[in-house]
């Protein structure tokens, strides 16, 4: 158990020094900070009545870059460790695979979620400075969405890294996962609906299973109670589930999916050859 914390701590220290973290912090941290700051400033002006253009853009950018960033950097660093024999050396010490795997997971999670947290704090400080009434609910729920989104993609990344040994195949698979999930957000789903080739229920199920779409609909529902920027699939989902239900689902489902993949990854890590 003591090694769990040790592995997590060393992984965090290592990440903080790495180039990818610097870029991530810069790009994503800045993005989130802008998001919270504008969100709060907007709310001063009009209260959280409408999702401003800008907020919408930030959210879409998050949907696109967060997953690919998490997937690529995580998969890359794990398979690089394997190929350069770092894994072989580190695992020649008496550390249980459980401590190693989950320690790495905790380390990664901390590092990925950290910029979001930082931005949140920044947003709140900014809001206080501007004298705005801080929309705690909205901020906390949105942070929970991002937390859940991080969880899904970290889970998938660890899963891919343990079942695929080759660096190139692992990177390729991450890319495919990302493209497929992006393809099945509202826009593509509308296309399918219009073609009338598949039943609406089927399309709705796809939407509900896609963590990116779930995040998207959840975020829109959160920021835009009037649902002005919503696609038909999103509209249908909110209409059927009700807003509260859907917000809960948008937090729990990605968390569950992430945990499932993380656990499957752990299972194969134990059952298959390590190198």
């Amino acid at each position: 158990m003591k090694n769990l914390g040790l592995i997590a701590k060393l992984d965090i220290k290592e990440s903080i020094r790495s180039r990818w973290f610097f870029v991530y912090l810069l790009v994503f941290g800045a993005l989130m900070a802008l998001f919270f700051v504008t969100g709060i400033t907007d709310s001063v002006v009009m209260g959280f009545t409408g999702l401003s253009r800008l907020l919408l853009v930030y959210m879409q950018v998050t949907i696109v870059i967060l997953p690919i960033f998490i997937l690529i950097t995580t998969v890359k660093s794990i398979s690089a460790d394997r190929e350069s024999a770092i894994l072989e050396y580190m695992l020649s010490f008496p550390i249980s695979l459980r401590d190693y795997y989950w320690g790495k997971m905790i380390g990664r999670f901390t590092i990925t979620f950290f910029p979001v947290l930082l931005a949140l704090v920044l947003g709140v400080v900014w809001g206080a400075f501007k004298g705005a009434e801080i929309p705690w609910n909205v901020l906390l729920i949105y942070s929970a969405f991002v937390f859940a989104l991080c969880a899904v993609f970290l889970g998938i990344a660890f899963f891919i890294s343990t079942i695929v040994k080759s660096h190139d195949v692992a990177l390729g698979s991450s890319f495919v996962v990302w493209i497929v999930l992006l393809a099945f957000i509202d826009i593509a789903l509308i296309g399918l609906m219009l073609q009338n080739r598949w039943s609406d229920e089927f399309i709705i199920s796809i939407a509900l299973l896609n963590p990116l779409e779930v995040f998207r609909v959840g975020a829109i529902a959160l920021f835009d109670p009037e649902l002005t920027v919503m696609g038909p699939v999103a509209y249908y989902l909110l209409d059927t589930f009700g807003k509260k239900m859907f917000l809960v689902y948008a937090i729990l489902y990605p968390l569950f999916l992430g945990a499932l993949f993380a656990y499957l990854g752990y299972y194969f890590f134990k059952k298959k050859d390590l190198l």
Binding site: L10, K13, E14, R17, S18, S84, A85, I86, Y89, S92
Partner: peptide
């Protein structure tokens, strides 16, 4: 001790 020292980043 492995064949070649791994490029450990720690």
């Amino acid at each position: 001790i492995p064949q070649t020292p791994p490029p450990i980043k720690l």
